[in-house]
């Protein structure tokens, strides 16, 4: 790790002031710290927002779910309120990394980092979530912009995510055998405004919605509707663990399983 200056922010406003230039925000640090250790990331300053109370907690009011950015994966996975409102998201959180990672990693960190193999971006997209920052509200659709890129501007801090609980939803993931990140993760959600299917781990430009699968499922929200479904391999990643063809195939398989789980 290169030299770095650590600051612990007392408030979001404090953090916004400190997060200038080559500084980076850190919450759980489960991606950033390892990247700094291997010197792939070299921020001048680290602004720790993990102890800001205003960024923590899960609120469910009617159908509206709001999760603070510094809420850990463990808290999301074990929240009773969320298990009632959107069990698919609890389930997703319970499958991120390992128990120790889930104790530190946060939803805000995962979203702001937008790793193409991270799980939360798929959920945000499929749930039609809104990303709340210290400056504005951004639709998930507009927030995720390719590999590790988001709509966040300098000094802008994710403070929460909010979404309307879907009628039905589920997440299925096929893991990279080594890293255990998603080779393919598919989040399906059936809500008031129709069916959304978001795919992580596979797209060569990051998380995306599969219109092919959404169209098939809009007609009939059933695994059987995907029997002959196909996803083009064209814009999918190829690496040593999975070719684009294999990923294209797995997307359909995971989608089928997710729909079956959502209906169960």
């Amino acid at each position: 790790m290169y030299s770095v200056n650590y600051h612990r922010a007392a408030s979001v406003a404090d953090a916004a002031k400190l997060a200038k230039g080559d500084a980076k925000l850190v919450s759980g640090g489960m991606t950033l710290i390892p990247a700094m250790k291997t010197r792939l990331a070299a921020p001048s300053d680290l602004v720790d927002i993990s102890r800001i109370d205003a960024l923590k907690g899960i609120k469910v009011s009617g159908k509206t779910v709001t999760i603070g950015a510094a809420t850990t994966h463990y808290e999301v996975a074990t929240s009773d309120k969320l298990a009632k409102a959107c069990p698919a998201l609890s389930h997703l959180a319970s499958m991120i990394g390992d128990p120790a990672v889930r104790h530190r990693g946060t939803i805000g960190g995962s979203i702001a980092n937008n790793d193409p193999a991270a799980d939360y971006p798929a959920a945000m997209l499929a749930l039609g979530a809104t990303i709340v920052t210290n400056k504005r509200q951004i639709a998930a659709e507009k927030f995720f912009k390719g590999l590790f890129e988001t709509a966040l501007k300098d000094g802008e801090i994710v403070t929460a995510v909010t979404f309307t609980a879907p009628a039905k939803a589920a997440y299925e993931k096929f893991r990279n055998p080594a890293s255990r990140y998603a080779i393919v993760g598919v989040f399906v959600a059936k809500g008031a405004d129709g069916v959304r299917v978001a795919v992580t781990g596979a797209g060569d430009d990051g998380v995306f919605r599969s219109r092919e699968l959404e169209t098939a499922l809009a007609k009939q929200f059933d695994a059987a509707a995907l029997t002959s479904a196909k996803v083009p391999a064209r814009a999918l990643m190829t690496d040593m663990h999975a070719s684009a063809d294999y990923r294209a195939h797995l997307i359909v398989v995971m989608a089928r399983r997710a729909v079956a789980a959502a209906n169960a």
Binding site: V26, I33, P34, D48, S50, A100, R104
Partner: peptide
């Protein structure tokens, strides 16, 4: 009280 990976956390974060 929670298990964490001490290789992925700064000492300053734990202070």
């Amino acid at each position: 009280g929670k298990a964490v990976k001490s290789c992925s956390m700064l000492a300053a974060q734990a202070s």
